[in-house]
Design a protein around this nucleic acid. Structure first.
Lengths: 216, 216
DNA sequence: ACGATTCAACCAAACGGTTAAACCAAATGG
DNA sequence: CCATTTGGTTTAACCGTTTGGTTGAATCGT
């Protein structure tokens, strides 16, 4: 679907946000030029200002949208799942799929964290809180049921989110490394989005499971 | 120690790199201005060009230095430690301490990953490879000895590095969240650098340990 | 025809980079 | 013992380009 064709099914504003998401992911806020944003969206610069606003407004819209979408999908998946282990698996699987398939999501989040959340509107922080809350609740209830052992829930969150964001954003570096050093090329470095999610889920569940399966 | 006082014990070039590390961590490559770099180092802009080179050269020097230092310390700690579990603990502890205490390290690494390693010189990638190699070796040998179970070693690396980089860079957002929502303030979100390392080490070891402690 | 939208051209400010002159401690030499 | 030179280093002022943002006219859909 070309940018021009998109305009027939998508509002101009959304076309702009789609293009902006990719550009901000690739170059960051300061690295992306407003002229580039307009060109990537197939739109005149003044149109961008008319439709959305200045560069910062575009960025805020992009980051709020990506965080809301991610939190929505992850929280919905957790709510649907039956059983605490299944909820954890779904949490991880959806986060992995979302950050892995929408390729701009992970770099944008990583950059935002790196900058101390300087451009994060409060609404975006609340979305992150929603995800953390869903995980914490599952961990707490699973612990109460004897399935999980007591753990620092925030740190478990860091493990899940950190590993998946890093893995998703990592890909160009892994590729480059494999090309430059084909002799140490390792297929285990190139899992698909879903495989990566499953692998992390296995590790996380092993980390939090109560090894004493018959609590007295 | 003021920037002026530093110049008596440190070369001008190193003073510049110290200031540049913090500024690049805070604002990223494109976000940091050459005028700011010079001002932060307490040095004239032309001095910066004379001592190191253009903006890109400063950045390359910064990133190579931080990655080399990190890899050196982490690999040395692993080499010194006795036993596979101890090696894993040291690996994580040193990485946590390094990224947590040198506060610019984590944001710089995260940003570089987010940008696909576009500015990573080959030498910097090799430093990352050194760390991954040290971990992989420990995991493989620990598995052969029956202490660890078979795991995707690269993904374990992602978990360790991802969680600690995220946690270290996260701090401003956590702070802000705690201030805006004091009612849900949670002390478990504010572990010290060393505590964070220990917590992650416990989780990782639980994840990779062979639960069948008496292999037949 | 009319408001909504898009456009090319434009602008001031900010930016990365350069330059010629000034500075300063250590060597030189009378 | 002091004046002068020398080489590395620092400086303020400057330059051409790029940047985010604006504007009035043209175009489009209805």
């Amino acid at each position: 679907m070309t940018a021009a064709a998109k305009q027939h099914t998508e509002s101009t504003a959304e076309t702009i946000l789609d293009a902006a998401s990719e550009l901000f992911a690739e170059k960051g806020y300061e690295g992306a030029r407003v002229d580039e944003l307009a060109k990537a969206a197939g739109v005149n610069k003044a149109t961008l200002y008319y439709q959305i606003g200045d560069k910062e407004a575009v960025y805020h819209a992009v980051i709020t949208r990506v965080l809301t979408r991610t939190a929505d999908e992850v929280c919905a998946a957790v709510a649907e799942a039956q059983g605490y282990e299944e909820k954890i698996r779904h949490y991880i699987a959806l986060f992995a799929r979302h950050t892995g398939n929408m390729r701009y999501a992970a770099p944008i989040m990583l950059r935002e964290v790196a900058s101390g959340g300087r451009n994060l509107p409060e609404s975006a922080i609340q979305q992150m809180g929603r995800m953390l809350g869903a995980l914490s609740e599952t961990l707490s209830e699973g612990e109460r049921s004897g399935l999980f052992r007591p753990v620092n829930e925030f740190m478990v969150h860091m493990m899940i989110v950190g590993s998946l964001l890093l893995y998703a954003s990592n890909e160009p570096i892994r590729r480059r490394n494999a090309e430059n050093n084909p002799e140490i090329y390792d297929a285990s470095h190139f899992l698909s989005t879903d495989e990566a999610g499953e692998t992390i889920a296995d590790l996380v569940l092993a980390a939090i499971s109560n090894t004493n399966n018959n609590p007295n």
